[in-house]
């Protein structure tokens, strides 16, 4: 199981579904959530203020693209700029119901993003994610 998964999505229903499915598939030990990129960044900012042992740094972020205040792309930019050291530690999966193919191309070009998943994330998605090379280590 992945220790901590960070779900960032403005759609509360989608958040709820993600949480339910994550629990059902025993995907992670702990789920933390944020409703937009700003909140997500704030979380990292506050955690990074803490001593290293007290920090709760998520291992995977399920990041929605279309969000108010600070969208997924903006978060990615700021996050990668502010915390390049977390690159190895934090894997980011983009989660979107966007139909614009450009989004997918853009996502694949971003080094922080290891996968682009069509919303909403279902049990099948999560099952296949467990086998993803980047994450498989948590489930063996």
């Amino acid at each position: 199981m992945i220790p901590i998964v960070f779900c960032v999505d403005d759609d509360r229903v989608a958040l709820m579904i993600s949480k339910l499915n994550l629990q059902k598939t025993q995907f992670c030990k702990e789920i933390i959530t944020a409703e937009n990129g700003k909140q997500a960044l704030d979380y990292f900012d506050s955690q990074m203020q803490l001593p290293e042992v007290e920090r709760k740094i998520p291992n995977l972020i399920l990041l929605d693209l279309n969000m108010p205040v600070l969208d997924g792309w903006e978060f990615l930019e700021l996050f990668s700029n502010n915390y390049p050291s977390l690159h190895e530690e934090v894997k980011i999966a983009l989660l979107s119901s966007s139909v614009n193919p450009d989004d997918k191309i853009k996502a694949e070009a971003n080094p922080f993003v290891f996968i682009f998943i069509d919303k909403a994330i279902g049990i099948d998605n999560l099952k296949s994610l467990k086998e993803h090379p980047e994450l498989v280590k948590y489930f063996s």
Binding site: I17, N66, S96, K119
Partner: peptide, 16 residues
């Protein structure tokens, strides 16, 4: 996208 988001939610809910 806006149509899809609630639809995917709906699908997920029905699935769960």
């Amino acid at each position: 996208h806006n149509m899809r988001s609630p639809l995917t939610n709906l699908l997920a809910i029905l699935d769960i």
